[in-house]
Design a protein around this nucleic acid. Sequence first.
DNA 1: CAAGGACCCTGTTTGC
DNA 2: TGCAAACAGGGTCCTT
Length: 278
Amino acid sequence: MPELPEVETVRRQLEPLMVGRRLASVSIRDSRLTRPLDPHAVEAALTGCTVGSVNRRGKYLVFDLDGVNWLAHLRMTGAFLTTSTGTFDDSRHLRAVVQLDDGAGVGYRDVRRFGTWAVLTDQELDYIFTTHLGPEPLSDAFDQAWLSVRFARSGARVKAALLDQTTAAGVGNIYADEALWQAGVHPARAAGSLDDSEIVALVAAVRGALTKGIERQGATLRDYRAPDGASGAMQDEFAVYGREGEPCNRCSGLVTKIRVAGRGTWFCPSCQPTSVRS
DNA sequence: CAAGGACCCTGTTTGC
DNA sequence: TGCAAACAGGGTCCTT
């Protein structure tokens, strides 16, 4: 589900409600949520801790509880929801509930149950991030030099390369398609076939798509909601995602849907031509 | 190294 | 209308 802009929106909403608060109680209702960790051990580790900061790395949320790291990944349908009263009107698919010391509640809903929670040491957290995640795409580390190195001589399709979290942490299916359209690059091109100007355009396009997504507070297609229940607005501004058969915003082409890297992929065949070199 | 599929799950949409 | 297959924003693992 949520990609970087959605997770960042969640982070920004949770931050003011949770920082400085003590976790009065933690109830994990679905033992799959913490697999392979024992849910009771996770409850015990979190209960009583005070939230120092709410951070994001790629699509992960990281709650810093004074040395205890609480990691959450929402995967496809995970969602945090907040309530000032501590109770939830709709408890369907509620997999965990955290009560804060001011009476507010933080719930975790996940229809498909792919999301995961973990409690990790600093060393474990560092290991996961350095081995599984590349640079933050909105940081200076994500630049032409980095993408050139990553793509050099790669025969992988450029969309697959963008979805690889070690290329840029947090890019998912939606923003990959939007960025490739913005850069005018066909999603099935070999990553190694992009020239310097295309790499530069793609770096800017990834940044631009994610920044716009954050400004619009994410995209709500099916399940995604911000913790306060609000929908995002980014879906209203998609150039290609989900717009099969509709006219391209930039040329006379029609948005086309194909399958790349096992995922639904939308692009404009007219302004995202297949390279002669790919 | 890359591609494709299975798998982890449930709900909704599509197609016959 | 009814039913079953296909599909969904993620990520990992295994085989080819």
